[in-house]
Amino acid sequence: MAFEPRIVGFLCNWCSYTGADLAGTSRIKYPPNVRVIRTMCSARIRPSFVLKALAEGADGVLICGCHPGDCHYSEGNYKTLRRQVLLKRLVAGYGIEPERVRLEWVSASEGQRFAEVVADMTERIRRLGPSRVEMLPSTRRAG
């Protein structure tokens, strides 16, 4: 059986999640490999969420937020952008290809774009092959 990547998508509630819904209402087809988790803002996405996903066996993580300047919370997406740079380095440090973590801007009116991003990401991860993460140190901190 061909390798089917498993990708976790973190989508902000106002732009990207709405955009993904729009792809649905417009019946734009895309591969079923991304499983979406909704957050209020892309800035809510703690780097540990990404690491957790990779540790649990995700082959890729997609983060989507509003376009720069469009953030529902003014500038949350800028914070996400800054974190992304560090995150990629961190991931690389663990020996994971940094391409497995991707940040994209998808607005509420870009259903088509969302579908394209998903299709492209799935294709890239497919070419990259399965994630080789056996076990990462747990990022969870017990309470």
Binding site: C41, R44, R46
Partner: peptide, 8 residues
């Protein structure tokens, strides 16, 4: 407004 930026 619950963006959660602070929590992250």
């Amino acid at each position: 407004k619950a963006c959660g930026c602070c929590a992250a």
